[in-house]
Nucleic acid binder design. Structure first.
Lengths: 185, 185
DNA sequence: TATTGTTATACTCTATAACTATA
DNA sequence: TATAGTTATAGAGTATAACAATA
């Protein structure tokens, strides 16, 4: 109820360039950008900026589908796990149950997903993509791949794989991630 | 007023492990975690998770100083740019001016920073750390370094530098970042 | 006319409590 | 007693409009 939220602790930067100076007060106010050198040595700061950069591109490219990153994530989990329950999605994406309700409702209202009785638990309901949802998800997934390529245009394919592997070692220290997320190590 | 915010577009995941399955509906509800393999191939998803992981550690370790990431960033910019103006901080950290006002007020109320008339612009005021602010920032900076080491414990020093360089190439494609953020290339 | 800093405020996102139906 | 899903709501973060003082 009071803990500063982890997710909202991320700020959103736009175009910091390089403008180091021993004293920023010289000259008129608003001259050049102040030095952020120290912050740029921190993995947290750089990871946040990179994430927000990619998300900015995501929002722009996914706008035609009216899918925010979280909506795409939910659709993706349902697409690859037909019959998955809300509870499972919450656990996988770390969404709190009350906050997922509205998203599922909205996707259902758009006729992208349906809910069917769970085979063995009458409390739960399995989520599935509708044919419309499958079509839209297929296009969205292609767009996501294209957008990722755009976001990482400055990197080689090998560098992208290295980057992903290193990021996983940060947030999932146990797993010795080496590759593309399917097999290997 | 209506555009989905970029910063809040980041969600906060916690402990996704690996539990691929062709159909998640089998078994009782809430069995294992559904497959998130596709999402894990995306730089955006992984960067977000890594950033949130580091931020979680940051919040815990910085709690004694009562500094959120944004507060630490603001203090850091002031510390390394004495006399910097609010406007410059906003530009460097991409904070909107109305949202910085409260932070500056709070830091001032805690006697960590002071505001002095700007030498050449009577509209602006230069921000400076107080001796108290300098002491606290020094400790906070040491804690930030320690916390970064903790957050990247699974990586070698070289891997950390590689990771930072690659992240910079994502959010700052122009700059051929190679090293530690001070000099080089 | 443009900019710095500010107030007020609306909107979005995140988190907690509490309830129901079922296990 | 515990869990899936839900409602309601509190709290934190992000965004825009508009203003006074100064450039």
């Amino acid at each position: 109820m009071s803990e500063p939220s982890i997710a909202n602790a991320l700020r959103r930067p736009r175009g910091v360039r390089k403008a180091a100076a021993p004293d920023a007060a010289a000259g008129a106010a608003g001259d050049g950008l102040p030095d952020t050198g120290h912050l740029e040595t921190l993995v947290g700061y750089n990871a946040r900026r990179a994430a927000l950069s990619v998300i900015g591109i995501f929002l722009r490219r996914m706008a035609p589908f009216e899918l925010r990153p979280v909506d795409y994530s939910v659709l993706s989990v349902i697409a690859h796990n037909p019959g998955v329950t809300s509870r499972q999605i919450c656990a996988a994406l770390d969404i709190l149950p009350p906050n997922l309700v509205g998203m599922v409702k909205a996707l259902q209202r758009r006729r992208l997903i349906t809910r069917r009785p769970h085979p063995s638990d009458r409390r739960a309901q399995g989520l599935h993509l509708t044919p419309t949802g499958e079509r839209l998800y297929r296009e969205a997934q292609a767009t996501a791949s294209a957008l990722e390529a755009e976001a990482t245009a400055a990197l080689t394919a090998d560098e992208v794989q290295t980057l992903i592997a290193l990021l996983r070692k940060v947030y999932r220290p146990g797993t010795a991630a080496t590759g593309n997320g399917d097999a290997a190590v």
